[in-house]
């Protein structure tokens, strides 16, 4: 009985993440279009795209690794979703929140990109492989400030678990973006790379790489990748809200907070041209890493 309830809770979480993530994607398309002075698609366009893709028959495959690549990507999104507290009191969405910690999350989040990279590799499309090498290089860039921010939080509150950090915020009654401001700055700057909007959209780079790693995928493959991407966006936003903005007591607050946070990379991206790979890495090793250092110093001495 308990197992059934747990599985139902997990499915509810996945559905929630899927819907929220997909809607955000649609809304972002709309916002981008309005800023570009276009009409843009309706906010539910992503759902239409997704269901169109799932309805299509796939005619070709490029071999076993390409076939299972999207499943790897999905593992990363859904398993990391299971370990992230959605709401402050858990409730239906508790899942596996207490079984893993931040360092585990950092590593499981890499599982997907690596699976995607392997899948993209087998297609033999040179653009895919170039996209992957760019993505991995950029990851080395933004993971440094991101981990620095996390380490700063960990040493400030003597815990490495997300739930522990949320409790710490509950006790002090202040959000961590105020109690450890430099960590927040470093983490937000790292987030710009994590979401891969301009100027950090070097992986997909529509005009150079013809969407990079996801090219050669259509139908169900693309549907899985697309929904995984939406879920993953939700995961990352919720993690940021949990860590820095005191979590959320109910779904409405969660949606408001995540959306506000989401606008940072989106709006910064719309008005920025694309970096080259080395510029992108150097960006992350500049100010964001500096703020990361300050955050660690702040956590140790203050």
């Amino acid at each position: 009985m308990e197992l059934t309830l747990n599985i139902l809770g997990a499915i509810a979480t996945i559905v929630l993440a899927f819907i929220v993530g997909m809607s955000y994607g649609g809304i972002v398309r709309k916002i981008t279009a309005r800023i570009h002075n276009r009409m843009g698609p309706p906010w539910y366009q992503n759902f239409i795209d997704a269901f169109k893709l799932i309805g299509k028959t796939t005619a070709i495959n490029h071999g076993i690794m390409q076939h299972f690549g999207p499943a790897f990507v999905m593992v990363s999104s859904i398993v990391s979703l299971m370990f992230i507290p959605i709401l402050n009191n858990g409730g239906w969405f508790t899942n596996l929140n207490f079984d893993g910690d931040l360092i585990f999350l950092i590593y499981i989040m890499v599982f997907g990109p690596l699976g995607m990279a392997l899948g993209a590799g087998q297609t033999g499309n040179p653009n895919s492989a170039i996209g992957v090498t760019r993505g991995l290089s950029q990851m080395v860039g933004f993971e440094i400030p991101w981990v620095m921010a996390l380490v700063a939080l960990m040493i400030q509150f003597d815990t490495t678990s997300v739930t522990g950090l949320m409790e710490a915020q509950h006790e002090t009654g202040r959000w961590m973006m105020f109690t450890s401001p430099f960590a927040f700055i470093a983490a937000v700057l790292a987030m710009l790379g994590m979401f891969r909007y301009s100027p950090f959209d070097i992986v997909g780079a529509p005009t150079e790489l013809a969407s990079g790693p996801v090219s050669e995928n259509g139908g169900k493959y693309l549907f899985t990748m697309m929904s995984s991407g939406s879920i993953f966006a939700f995961v990352k936003l919720t993690l940021y809200v949990d860590l820095f903005m005191g979590g959320a007591d109910n779904l409405i607050i969660l949606v408001l907070k995540t959306f506000a946070l989401y606008m940072v990379p989106v709006l910064y991206g719309i008005v920025s041209p694309r970096y080259r790979t080395e510029q992108s890495i150097k960006f992350f090793w500049g100010w964001p890493t500096f703020f990361g250092f300050i955050a660690i110093l702040y956590a140790v001495f203050v």
Binding site: T57, T58, A59, I60, N61, H62, G63, H67, Q122, T123, G124, N125, P126, N127, A210, S215, E216, K220
Partner: peptide, 17 residues
């Protein structure tokens, strides 16, 4: 309903822009 029906294509059979 996928893998069996789909046809394996070589790595030259790609959308190169």
């Amino acid at each position: 309903k996928g893998f069996k029906k789909t046809r394996y294509v070589t790595t030259k059979d790609i959308s190169s822009s």
